[in-house]
Amino acid sequence: MSDPGVDTPAPSGGGQLPRRKGFGAETVFRTGTLAAGTLVLVIIVAITAFLINEAVPALRADTANFITETEWFPNQTPPVFGIAAIAWGTLVTSVIALVVAVPIALGIALYLSHYAHRRVATTFGFLIDLLAAVPSVVFGLWGFTVFIRPVRTFSIWLNDYFSWLPFFGGDGPFGRSFLLGGLVLAIMVLPIITSLSREVFLQTPVPDQEAALSLGATRWEMIRTSVLPYGRAGVIASIMLGLGRALGETIALALTLGFINEITFNIIENGGNSIAANIANGFGEAGEIGRGALIASGLVLFAITLVVNMAARVIIYRRREFTESAA
């Protein structure tokens, strides 16, 4: 018997079931999403090709070793420039940012997920997320007009008592330093690490937490035996994402670093430069070689961030496998 609502063309199967539609919303949707996905790939490839194309002539003209040279004078003749000092600055400021931000962020995240009253946690969590929405130029301006004062005082104090450590030596002036840049970055990555870690901690299965509590664990012991092991991979991934942000930050560092290209462990003396800040400050007055040189440095930064992001993905992916097998 045939369904009155469906056209039944010449039966190819048993002829009883409705035929598949040739063209419809499904096809449109599939094509649309495929196009969107492909577009992203095309854009990435196009950008990369353009950047490499711009960078290669500048790298050819470079009379120094691009990897090991610390100076950055691409506009003089002959051009002398290298990535070493600015890449160093990028790494140092990011490391300072993470060393400061990670313990604070994890403390806040645990407080919000396991200690604070629900209403407090919601309000506080909202404020943290708001911090992530502050434009980086605001952080930069605040850093070099306001925050620099306490940091300078602190730097002088560190220099007075700990100048025997390589990080805190030198004769000044202090202030526009790796320390200032790193601390501003720390404030900027804090909300990322906090809110992602909080999410992970909140997802800890209740039975896991009750297992610990029913054995007579205190709140902290419960966190140690069930929440932290469960959240470890997620926390690492959130740190990686924070690191990605710190590595790529431009304007805040352009405003807070002292612009001296050198590879130094001293983090309190005026000085320091980073890849992104160097691009922001140098692009306007750059000649043709200068532009290519900056683009080359941007490619290096791109590679560093790519590696960090890929590492984060790998960790997140491993975590997913782990939680699936445990369920």
Partner: peptide, 29 residues
């Protein structure tokens, strides 16, 4: 809670711990 132990509806061994570590988790606490 140490004096009055509890077994739950769904088995809930600590997922990241070995069998041995699970058994002695309470003692370690």
């Amino acid at each position: 809670r140490r004096m009055i132990g509890m077994v739950f509806q769904r088995p809930n061994p600590f997922p990241t711990m070995s069998i041995f570590d699970n058994v002695v988790a309470g003692l370690r606490l």
